[in-house]
Amino acid sequence: MTDAQASMEAPGEADRPQMKVSDEVAIQIEKMNKWFGSFHVLRDIDLTVYRGERIVICGPSGSGKSTLIRCINALEEHQKGRVVVDGTALSSDIKNIDTIRSEVGMVFQHFNLFPHLTILENCTLAPLWVRKIPKREAEETAMHFLEKVKIPEQAHKYPGQLSGGQQQRVAIARSLCMRPRIMLFDEPTSALDPEMIKEVLDTMIALAEEGMTMLVVTHEMGFARQVANRVIFMDAGQIVEQNEPEEFFNNPQSDRTKLFLSQILGH
C-alpha cells in the first residue's frame, strides 16, 4: 500500500521544477503500456524528459527498464499510450520511426558493432547512408568523435581486435556521428571487466558535461550520483520512485527502493 502511494506521488513531475535543466521537452511519454504476449511489462508509464537532462534508470532485472528505453526508439513497440520524441509522435509509420531513430542514439550492453567493418566504417556508415553526408565529411566527423572517446589510433582496425571497453567507446562514437539530440544507454557497462568500466563511464561523463540529453539504464550508482540530475527506480513495469540523486540515495521513500538500494550498495 505504501508502495502504491509512493509510486502515485513520485512521478508527479509538475511539482519538481528544480529538476529541470531547460523548459524544452525532449521526450514525452504518456500512459504507455506494453505487453510481451500476455505479460504486462510496462504499466502506465508517464515520463517527461527535458532537453539536457541526464536520467539514470535503475531497478531489479525484469523490471522493464530496458524495455522502456527501447520503446523510445521503437526497437520495441508499445501497445497503448503516447510517446513523443523530439516533437515527433511515435506511430507505426516506418518513415516516422526512421526519423526518430536517426535523431536518437543508442548504446547497447553488448556494443553491437558491425564486425565486418572497420572502426571508421562503423562510424561513417549511418551518416553516409542515412544522412547522405559526403564521404570526406563523414570521415572527418568520425575521426573527431573517435578522438573524443580517445581511440583515434584504432580507426582502421576491426571491432574484433579491440578490448570490450574500447568497443563500447567506439559504439558511443558511432552513435554520436549521427549528431543525435538524445542518447539512450542500455546497461553500457554490464558486459565489461571492472577496469574497463571506468573508461566507458569517463566517456559518458564527458558527454553529460557537454549537455547531451541522456537516458541511462545502469547499476553504476557512482555514475548516477555524479552525473544524473534525476534517478528513476522501476519495479514490476512501473516507475516506483524518482528523485534527485542526493535525495534518492540518502532518503529513499518507498520500501522497494530501500530494499533495492540496500542490496546493491550493501556489498
Binding site: N73, L75, D98, T99, R101, S102, V104, G105, M106, F108, H110, F111, N112, L113, F114, L125, A126, W129, V130, R174, S175, M178
Partner: peptide, 11 residues
C-alpha cells in the same frame, strides 16, 4: 544485436 544496431542507427 546486429539487427537492432542497424535499426537504432536509422537504416
Amino acid at each position: 544485436g546486429q539487427y537492432e544496431a542497424a535499426d537504432a542507427l536509422g537504416l
